[in-house]
Design a protein around this nucleic acid. Structure first.
Lengths: 144, 144
DNA sequence: TTACATGTAATCATAATAATTACAATTTAA
DNA sequence: TTAAATTGTAATTATTATGATTACATGTAA
């Protein structure tokens, strides 16, 4: 089990749009960097658009960022691409036996805990911006 | 995508062993409460045993806790049942294009962030014991 | 030796993912 | 007006993971 790479690809797309801000970031161009096919990129871009993170129009080549770099967090991307629903990071068995004191309470007892764990993870993502990601990549370029 | 219910079932099993500490917790007994089949329970119990959380012996009916309730955290269970490997909660696309500054840095830039997010989630689990879970279930029984 | 429980491998149906193909809809430029 | 290029989106496929199930070998105790 792991969270869909749509999320990492979304971050990749937004970062590359910034790196290529003076050029045209078509789905084919982005797909070459991600190393996948343009249709998948367009699907993810569609989700980013729906979330208000990018601007893109049918027939017009290229995608632009709709917000400043410092105003887009990894949590925004994560939410945009629907990799995990609220309260659904953890799968809880569906039909425990209500005749048993554990069976009839397990869900109500652990779901709040699991939800808190999920929120703690998401909070970390919320504290990282695409601006940081881009700057970090530039740093790594300098070093190498 | 979501984390396997093996984890929630593991918590269920340990809690029920405690509730039933004066009786015999066979895989069939546990399976009835979880509402699944005994083979799956035995598989999960095998993992809990390997992690030193329970005692169980071939041919001898029943499973016992190997540690005190207050010394077993949800993180112990999570680790025991192998629902998520270290650094693998998030899937990162495998072969980004090394000719692109984003493609050649995306992994090194986001993996530490994703790892920190995963650890934050796991830390929450590490702060909750089976003792708390059992007590909370008892509380909920009183109320209802 | 018989009955019963655990340990474990194998099989199967289902669901999710990512890759891919295909094509309609839209825009721009010739 | 037409042609070319791009986005939007649905459908298909191969692969993988999960959970349910079956089967049976192994081990214990009466």
């Amino acid at each position: 089990m792991s969270i869909s790479s749509r999320f990492a690809v979304g971050v990749h797309i937004l970062s590359l749009i910034e790196f290529n801000k003076d050029g045209v970031s078509s789905s084919e161009y982005l797909a070459e960097s991600v190393n996948t096919n343009p249709a998948l990129i367009r699907k993810i871009i569609g989700m980013l658009k729906k979330a208000g993170l990018v601007e893109v129009h049918p027939g017009i080549p290229g995608t632009k960022l709709a917000r400043s770099l410092s105003d887009i967090t990894l949590l925004d991307v994560y939410k945009a691409v629907n990799v995990v629903q609220d309260n659904e990071l953890f799968n809880v068995h569906e039909s425990p036996n209500p005749k048993c004191p554990v069976g009839r309470n397990i869900q109500n007892t652990i779901i709040p805990i699991l939800s808190a764990a999920q929120l703690a993870m998401e909070k970390v993502l919320g504290n990282v911006t695409i601006e940081y990601v881009v700057k970090d990549m530039l740093e790594k370029e300098k070093i190498n």
